[in-house]
Design a protein around this nucleic acid. Structure first.
Length: 275
DNA sequence: AAGAAGTCCTGGGCGC
DNA sequence: TGCGCCCAGGACTTCT
């Protein structure tokens, strides 16, 4: 599941390969992946556009193009974006192939077909659904500890769903929300407005530390994730609670428990994470 | 109006 | 053995 660290890693790997290149064409095998404009217009508009730079906003990957256009890519759960040599066998579930003017390709694959790709004028970014309502990036200078504490008090909901709410803070998904709460020693069901200043600070620090470490380890490959070169990350070996049901807590030795919260599988240590 | 629930999708795992 | 049910989950839509 590409969350912030995975999208950041894809961005960094593609950054060394594709800026300066231009699109020569695009093959769309599954039209519904192209959200807007309509697939036909999408493939008509893209050729000739040069890749200027890559950006990440939350879990969105933005590819800035010439003529003030932006390619917006969201990988959702199983999306992959891999820079490939033309003679590499096409992986199963490849839905879109972007052809580049150096003969190489950018391939979009997505087993569950939830991901979406759009091509919009840069001036439309601010009103683009999802992007426009995005909360601050955890590494944005505006995302200060004081800001976080203020926002936390405004909400009345459980911590886990709150961390997953992209309009609250952008970039966390199911894996890192579990890891963050474990590091902060806070129970996922804890109500956000009941946190003491000390606990809120701890949560703030945990968000940045966990994401930082995950980026340093090139993301988490539990099922599908690979970076822009097709390589797996390493953070799945460093997870402390997620996907570790029944295994001993690294602090207290008691078994990690899997609960269901807000319709999502949630891993925690009930002993170390107090309600 | 904010929060909760339903929706999309497919391969793998499990139960009978 | 083999079929088929159900689950995973990000973010948008719909409901309360």
């Amino acid at each position: 599941m590409p969350e912030l660290p995975e999208v950041e890693t894809i961005k960094r790997t593609l950054e060394t390969k594709i800026p300066g290149l231009s699109f020569t064409g695009v093959e769309i095998f599954l039209p519904k992946i192209i959200k807007n404009p309509a697939p036909q217009e999408f493939s008509a508009r893209l050729p000739g556009k040069e890749i200027k730079k890559l950006e990440r906003k939350g879990k969105y990957l933005l590819i800035r193009l010439s003529e003030n256009l932006v390619l917006i890519i969201h990988l959702r759960m199983t999306g992959r974006l891999v820079y490939s040599l033309p003679d590499t066998p096409v992986a199963p579930h490849t839905h879109v192939i972007f052809h580049l003017n150096n003969g190489c390709q950018l391939r979009y694959g997505d087993l569950r077909q939830f991901g979406q790709i759009s091509l919009v004028p840069a001036s439309d970014l601010a009103s683009f659904p999802g992007l426009s309502s995005l909360g601050p990036d955890p590494f944005d200078p505006h995302f200060t500890r004081e800001f976080f504490k203020r926002e936390l008090k405004k909400r009345r909901t459980m911590l886990k769903p709150l961390l997953l709410d992209q309009s609250f803070v952008s970039g966390l998904g199911n894996i890192y929300a579990d890891e963050v709460l474990y590091r902060a020693r806070l129970h996922p069901r804890r109500q956000s407005h009941t946190l003491t200043p000390r606990e809120a600070s701890c949560l703030y620090r945990a968000i940045r530390e966990v994401l930082q470490e995950a980026i340093a380890n090139r993301g988490t490959s539990i099922r599908d994730y690979v970076d822009g070169n097709g390589n797996e990350g390493n953070y799945q070996n460093l997870l402390k609670v997620h996907d570790r049901e029944g295994e001993p807590c690294l602090k207290c030795g008691r078994p990690i428990v899997r609960a269901r919260l807000g319709g999502r599988g949630t891993y925690l240590c009930p002993h170390c994470q107090k309600s």
